[in-house]
C-alpha cells in the first residue's frame, strides 16, 4: 500500500534530473559514437567478422598489436622502477621542498604532449643536444640514432607517463604512518626486511593505481609513437589513424579501435573490481 502520497517531492528525483542533462549529452556525443565504431567494425566485408579476421590473420596487424602491448608493458615497468624510489623520497619531504617537488612533477602535466614530443625531437637530432653532449664527453664517436626506433618512443613515453605513476605513489606513501617503519626497526627487523614486510605491502594501493593508469593510457598512445617511432614499429593508435586518413578503410580502423576499446574497458573493470575487493575505493570513488 502506498498510502495517500502519490508523486512525492524528493531530493533524489531532483538530483536525477540534474544528472540527466550531462548524461544525455554524453549518451549522444560519447556512447553513440563509441557504439558507432563497434557497429562499423562488423561492416564492409563478407560476413560480420571479416574485419576481425583480417586483423588477427595478417601478421603485420598482429605485430602492431603485440608491439603495442610490449611498449605499454616496458613503459609501465620503467615508470614503476623510476617512480618508486623518487616517490618514496618526495613523500617524506616537508614544506617548501615538497611544494617544489610537486611543482616539478606537475609542470609536465600542464605541458602539451605535442610540445614535449617536439622537445625530444629537438634533443634527439643527429646534431642535437644529446648527441653533442655524448660526443663532447667522449662516450661515443658517431652520433646515435634515437628517433624512428624503439629508444626514442620509450624515452618519450616514460617522460609523459612518469607523473601518472608518481602522483598515486606519493599519495600512497604519504598515507603510510612512519611509525610503522620505526616500530619494525625497534622490533629488530633490518631495513631490507622492514621494507619488504612493511613498506612494500602498504604501498601496494599506489602501485596498482599507478600501474593500471600508466599501462592503460600507454595502450592508446598516439602522438609520441607517431612522431618518434619508426614505420616498422607502429602502435595501434597510429595504425588506426593511418587506416582512416591514408587508406580510408573505416571498417578496419573501427575493428582495430574496437579491440583497443575492449581491452581498455576490460582492464579498467578488472582493476576496479580488484581494488574494490582489496578494500580500497574503485575507479569511481
Amino acid at each position: 500500500m502506498q498510502g495517500t502520497t502519490g508523486r512525492i517531492w524528493s531530493p533524489a528525483r531532483g538530483y536525477f534530473v540534474i544528472l540527466s542533462l550531462p548524461v544525455l549529452f554524453l549518451l549522444v556525443f560519447f556512447v553513440w559514437p563509441m557504439a558507432g565504431v563497434v557497429l562499423r567494425s562488423f561492416e564492409g566485408g563478407e560476413g560480420i567478422f571479416s574485419q576481425y579476421l583480417t586483423v588477427f590473420e595478417r601478421s603485420s596487424y598482429i605485430k602492431v598489436l603485440l608491439y603495442t602491448l610490449q611498449v605499454a608493458t616496458t613503459v609501465t615497468v620503467l615508470c614503476l622502477l623510476i617512480a618508486y624510489p623518487v616517490a618514496a623520497l618526495v613523500a617524506r619531504l616537508q614544506g617548501k621542498w615538497l611544494q617544489i617537488a610537486f611543482a616539478l612533477i606537475l609542470v609536465p602535466f600542464w605541458t602539451s604532449t605535442v610540445i614535449r614530443t617536439y622537445a625530444w625531437m629537438v634533443l634527439f637530432q643527429r646534431k642535437g643536444v644529446i648527441n653533442g653532449m655524448l660526443i663532447d664527453m667522449g662516450l661515443i664517436a658517431e652520433p646515435l640514432r634515437f628517433m624512428h626506433n624503439n629508444i626514442g618512443v620509450h624515452i618519450g613515453m616514460v617522460h609523459i607517463m612518469l607523473p601518472f605513476m608518481l602522483l598515486p605513489l606519493i599519495s600512497a606513501f604519504r598515507n603510510i604512518d612512519p611509525s610503522y617503519m620505526r616500530a619494525a626497526g625497534v622490533l629488530g627487523a633490518n631495513p631490507i626486511r622492514a621494507f619488504w614486510h612493511v613498506y612494500l605491502p602498504l604501498s601496494m594501493p599506489g602501485v596498482s593505481a599507478g600501474v593500471a593508469l600508466v599501462f592503460i593510457t600507454s595502450l592508446g598512445f598516439f602522438i609520441t609513437p607517431a612522431l618518434l617511432g619508426g614505420a616498422h614499429n607502429m602502435m595501434v593508435a597510429v595504425l588506426i589513424e593511418q587506416q582512416v586518413t591514408i587508406t580510408v578503410n573505416w571498417e578496419l580502423a573501427s575493428a582495430l579501435a574496437s579491440v583497443l576499446l575492449l581491452v581498455t574497458a576490460a582492464l579498467y573493470i578488472v582493476y576496479d573490481w580488484v581494488s574494490r575487493r582489496a578494500g580500497g575505493g574503485g575507479v569511481l570513488d
Binding site: G3, T5, R7, W9
Partner: peptide
Amino acid sequence: PPTTGQIIIDGRNVVG
C-alpha cells in the same frame, strides 16, 4: 520522502 502516510500541519497535508 516518506514511504506511506500523511503529515497534517494546521489541517493541510504537507507530504509531497
